[in-house]
């Protein structure tokens, strides 16, 4: 697995800590956040590639957090996690530009695969932007 930064956002301590630990064991850099607000703070200050985001949280819920992430860090890919959420929130998340969604409870392998895919998308996206920028710089008379 390539090394990239994952932020796990879930209000359930046990689930979050376990997921972070398992991801780290598989060579990823993982952090945890207990809620939407904390997640946005971490995104503000440290490098994150992919966010694993629980839809159902007290306070700022997953959908609102997703909305904020899209504004603040449009390049960061978000994988939604739905458990007790209604069927609707899966679709709503996709409409807001989430990369994909997963159902709780999740197995490690499909989770890694999904996070990897999300990271790949982010990387390609970033490459493209960098290339465009590079071209602009090159074409500019110095």
């Amino acid at each position: 697995m390539r090394e990239f930064n994952v932020l796990v956002v879930d209000d359930e301590d046990e689930f979050r800590d376990l997921t972070v630990k398992r991801l780290e064991k598989r060579g990823l850099k993982a952090k945890g956040a207990a809620g939407g607000k904390e997640a946005l703070e971490i995104l503000e200050h440290s490098h994150t590639d992919v966010v694993l985001l629980d839809v159902k949280m007290p306070g700022m819920d997953g959908i609102e957090t997703l909305r904020q992430i899209r504004i603040m860090r449009p390049l960061v890919e978000v994988v939604l996690l739905t458990g007790h959420a209604s069927v609707d929130s899966g679709i709503e998340g996709m409409k807001l530009g989430a990369f994909d969604y997963l159902m709780k409870p999740i197995e490690l392998e499909p989770l890694l695969e999904k996070l990897g895919d999300a990271y790949e998308k982010k990387r390609l996206h970033q490459d493209k932007i960098e290339q465009a920028q590079m071209k602009r710089h090159l074409s500019m008379p110095s």
């Binding site: 899966g90 679709i91 159902m103």
Partner: peptide
């Protein structure tokens, strides 16, 4: 529920 969500998300 999970099957339905899968169907809906993919159709979307």
């Amino acid at each position: 529920r999970s099957k339905i969500t899968t169907i809906l998300v993919n159709v979307y």
